[in-house]
Design a protein around this nucleic acid. Structure first.
Lengths: 393, 393
DNA sequence: CTAAGTTTGTCTAGTGACTAAACAAAGATT
DNA sequence: AATCTTTGTTTAGTCACTAGACAAACTTAG
């Protein structure tokens, strides 16, 4: 039978209005009840009553009074960002980055560990150690640890299974289930580029954009799509494989089965394989060389920019986004690569599609992914929490 | 100041529930009140009251009693699809197709006229003639003509201005404003491929898909995107320019400024320009020849399929859609082109992205666009109508 | 053919979330 | 000191919904 969209009743109204009030406080704190009423269009009485519930739930608190504007001084409300904490992991090929965040996405504790071996069992052990350390570092809070999340460079099913992570050599790892069993907490497993897109949208360069494309240029190329303000995942969760978009018909053979894939020309791997000298072992060394005016390094980075430009031009034509944000390993080379990208785009993109788009490097640098994961966990907490508190009241 | 999302109150609840009830009747008529209550989860009394309002508004009607299932026989409710009519136009380069539809998207009257001249003033005159004829053909109805819409092969701004339609040689035509002034009715102006996507989603091959990509292969290639069930337009409305996606770096120069654009290899124009004999003046003549086993024709169509396959493979990697639907002029050649497309895709697409996707020709054939336009007008009517009737009650 | 059980659709009483408006508290202004 | 403003709470009233009773209309069993 077809699932019918939600029926509407007072219950729903209350829940939505409560979320609305909480969101106002989260975004505009410190803010007074009167001001919330004005902004949301809700009655002052309604706001008062909802605010009082939120205070009972320890999600907000009153701070002192604010500035008078010619009458009684308002009582300012604060978001209690320490009501709970999240743990977020960026699982890379060479290392794992883990952070402990409050409910506003502030990093309280961060740790990076080096990975020598990508075998599932070994990685899991290291992961548990890192997570336990971060849990231990969390201050006491009404809601404690509200969720754990992890960003993985691979294809993730909607059920949180890592179907394939070629650079880790992982296949069919039920990561969400494994972590949920171990920690009995809400678990988020998301593709690294999708998470990066959310991170930049929530806390980084893309906060004002409703349609943004995050291009993660690392060993390969992955893309996260925020369309109409929401992460777009496709029917099974496999969208954003733009790294395997053909930009040269009858081009190089890719191990994915396709030919002329973008990432064969524009990724870090592509960059390194095109280097003539053996001294270039990573994007880092090339950037260092370029900074010392090494001609080959500069030329390599310039070429990379051109190839990235080809794909980004396609992106502008396909999505007409408000913003394109470049992240992951290439962020280090932004200074050298971005000008070449812009030059290519300006010469090749249809005017309409070029006009209002902003193209930039990731503002959160290496934290785009972890903070995106944190954001997903936080929003999940507020959604679930509303449902739970409903039952309690 | 930031616009705050809607505040929720009983008014909204009623409006939403009324829409819910109406949608049930639109989709499942004939249906009883009891059945609606069961399906929506609304109380029987609530349904009765909303149904009675909808009857007053002439949007639904009672037909006789239905089959008993062991008790009192239910009163069946019907959607009054003739409560109003829409007029929809597909503006082509060589002809204009116009239809009169009821509120269920049934075509009551259709007419196609040939265009010799694409000059704005001349096209407008022909358009007015066609629209007037269709208006005259509409039966009497409580709401009369509820909207006029038009699909245009070009770049349309969110304000309904035709910014550029290269094949018509139109630039900056305020089409929506012109038609609104003349007819004083809700006007929809939409890109032809976007409309086609909506048409196939609402009435055609894509009714069950939430994420579908409609590829309009005509003189050029345009693409309409339905993502998460909604038309995706991008920040200014210029999405879907996949015709100008590079599939060959350093490839052919396109008049759009880019190089190696998909439509230079896979459109009708591309097909014709590659033909060695002059006898092939349109896709139609090539298909006719292929049907008579003409080797060049068959080979041309086969190549077209391969080139379409390159772009569609990209689409599968980018969007992981549930469905890809091919429409416009190429629909005639489906029999010859589709197998080649599928062959290419099967050989080049990542398994995950290939697995659950359905690739097919447009079910509505040459009516995809007009019916999509009709659908937009109809939904607009119900949205606006709800608002108006709110004021009256 | 009658009696019992079922299903449909309406009606009534009650609930709960909201709004409008009155009001008290606290400060600014003259 | 008196008046005006602004804030936040309280009270009365509105409205859409739900639960459950009920009448009407039908099926089924004996």
């Amino acid at each position: 039978m077809k699932i019918v969209s939600q029926t509407w009743n007072q219950h729903v109204v209350k829940k939505e209005n409560k979320t609305l009030v909480l969101d106002q406080i989260r975004e505009h704190a410190p803010i007074s009840r009167a001001s919330i009423a004005q902004q949301t269009g809700l009655n002052k009485g309604t706001v008062s009553s909802l605010v009082s519930e939120l205070m009972n739930e320890k999600l907000i608190s009153e701070s002192g009074t604010g500035q008078s504007s010619g009458g009684r001084r308002p009582v300012m409300l604060l978001f209690n960002q320490q009501a709970g904490f999240t743990i977020s992991i960026d699982l890379g090929v060479k290392n794992i980055l883990g952070v402990l965040c409050d409910l506003k996405g502030n990093i309280l504790e961060g740790k990076k560990i080096i990975l020598e071996d990508n075998q599932v069992e070994i990685v899991l052990e290291r992961l548990y150690g890192l997570i336990n350390e971060l849990i231990a570092a969390a201050p006491d809070a009404p809601y404690g640890i509200v969720g754990i999340g992890i960003g993985v460079p691979g294809v993730i099913s909607n059920e949180g299974e890592v179907l394939l992570a070629p650079n880790l050599d992982w296949k069919n790892v039920q990561l969400k289930e494994i972590l949920a069993d171990k920690y009995q907490l809400p678990i988020v497993v998301e593709n690294e580029a999708n998470a990066g897109a959310i991170g930049e949208k929530t806390y980084g360069a893309g906060q004002k954009s409703n349609d943004l494309v995050y291009v993660s240029v690392g060993t390969g190329i992955g893309v996260g799509l925020i369309l109409d303000g929401e992460l777009y995942k496709g029917i099974r969760g496999f969208s954003g494989e733009l790294g395997h978009m053909t930009i040269e018909r009858d081009g190089l053979k890719c191990r994915c089965g396709n030919t002329g894939c973008w990432e064969l020309y524009a990724s870090e791997n592509a960059l390194l394989s095109k280097a003539k000298t053996d001294q270039f072992k990573s994007i880092h060394t090339i950037v260092k060389a370029a900074e010392k005016n090494d001609k080959e390094a500069i030329s390599l980075l310039n070429d990379m920019g051109k190839y990235l430009g080809i794909g980004i031009t396609n992106i502008l034509h396909i999505f007409n986004p408000e913003q394109v944000i470049l992240g992951n390993a290439m962020i280090e080379a932004e200074k050298f690569v971005l000008p070449a990208i812009l030059e290519y785009i300006d010469a090749h993109t249809i005017g309409f599609n070029r006009d209002d788009v902003k193209i930039s490097g990731a503002m959160l640098k290496e934290y785009s992914t972890v903070l995106g994961i944190a954001s997903v966990n936080i929003e999940l907490f507020f959604k679930e929490n509303q449902a739970t508190l409903e039952l309690l009241s």
